[in-house]
């Protein structure tokens, strides 16, 4: 199957590239990868090669970004990705239990490393490092939505809202 970027998305990407001097297109790499991941849900080998071609780079220049930056995914995730903050203030505020709560509810292993996806492919859960809202611990994100002071009841509510 060939990899196609819809015209509307490509137009957005072309606009993003103009934010950088014409001979510094490489700088747009992260912004392009965000745009592609938002659209496709993950970054396939084809997406990486497409980005490289678009910016006049070698695929390795793009691949090494995808493997380094924690937000980029090389495999599909659930429709809803839940990121629970693991770092100190949230840990003091009960984020360990919150993460466990999600895992138990969704039939995942709370002690496994990295991103895990529920059997039905609807939810992924992962621990992430500091989300910079330490005063309202514990905090989390569900896709791009940010939630603070998340009790277990609020966690259930968030899951319930995911259609």
């Amino acid at each position: 199957m060939s990899f196609t970027v819809p015209a509307k998305l490509e137009a957005e990407i072309d606009e993003l590239i103009t934010h950088y001097p014409a001979d510094k297109k490489r700088s747009a790499s992260l912004m392009l990868l965000h745009a592609l991941q938002e659209h496709f849900g993950w970054l396939s080998k084809d997406a990486i090669e497409w980005t490289a071609t678009k910016l006049g780079l070698q695929p390795i220049n793009v691949f090494e970004l995808v493997t380094f930056y924690p937000m980029f995914r090389q495999q599909p995730a659930g429709k809803y990705v839940i990121k629970v903050c693991r770092t100190l203030s949230c840990a003091l505020g009960g984020s360990g239990k919150l993460h466990e709560h999600f895992c138990t509810k969704l039939g995942l292993d709370a002690h496994a490393h990295g991103l895990q996806t529920s059997k039905d492919g609807k939810f992924s859960v992962e621990f992430v490092e500091c989300l910079a809202s330490c005063g309202t611990a514990p905090v989390m994100m569900c896709n791009e939505e940010f939630y603070e002071g998340v009790s277990h009841a609020k966690a259930d509510e968030i899951l319930g809202k995911c259609g």
């Binding site: 490489r26 747009a28 992260l30 912004m31 970004l65 380094f68 937000m71």
Partner: peptide
């Protein structure tokens, strides 16, 4: 002025790492 988004790496807060990242490289 333009907005440039990072992608989850703490080291990008270090100014020279940030610059590398803004150049489209590992930070």
């Amino acid at each position: 002025i333009h907005v440039h988004r990072g992608a989850g790496a703490y080291i990008c807060g270090e100014e020279t790492g940030l610059i590398e990242s803004l150049e489209g490289k590992r930070p």
